[in-house]
Amino acid sequence: MDPGKNQSLFKDKPIKILLAKPGIDGHDRGILVLAKAFRDAGMEVIYVGLLPTPEEVVDTAINEDVDVVALSLLNGAHMTVFKKVADLMREKGVRDIAIVGGGTIPDADKPKLEKLGITGNYGPGTPIAEIINHITERAAEIRKLKATGE
């Protein structure tokens, strides 16, 4: 896709994204690289460090009014922990925050995560540009929703 077409949506206010590793997982190489890359791409990045609970992730996302929450896990617990984040969002009635995922996620799990509204779900070796495009797309949806829905 062409990231240029959504540019006007973010002109005054860059994409605001929360990066989080909910659950118990210290593998932070990937998320630290992405934090820098997203910042270099002009996004406003919040990274809360290791070991936040799903509750803390959702609360931070709401309080910071982010466009996107990007979840990363490399410990195999994504089906439980990502789902908890998505469920909490739904329980709190949050519809204007997109959730994207990444990590070591087997192909078979991806459709199940998509069904929960968690998209992307990129594995190792994905080009950063592809991830940024996807986030930009999701953030654009959110901005449009905010502009019309509220």
Binding site: I24, G76, A77
Partner: peptide, 22 residues
């Protein structure tokens, strides 16, 4: 596994979904 490495038992709610994974 991760809960063991961080000193959490398997019955801690934080450990849900992580038991035996890594």
């Amino acid at each position: 596994d991760m809960p063991t490495l961080y000193g959490f038992d398997c019955d801690n709610t934080r450990a849900d979904g992580e038991i035996g994974k890594c």
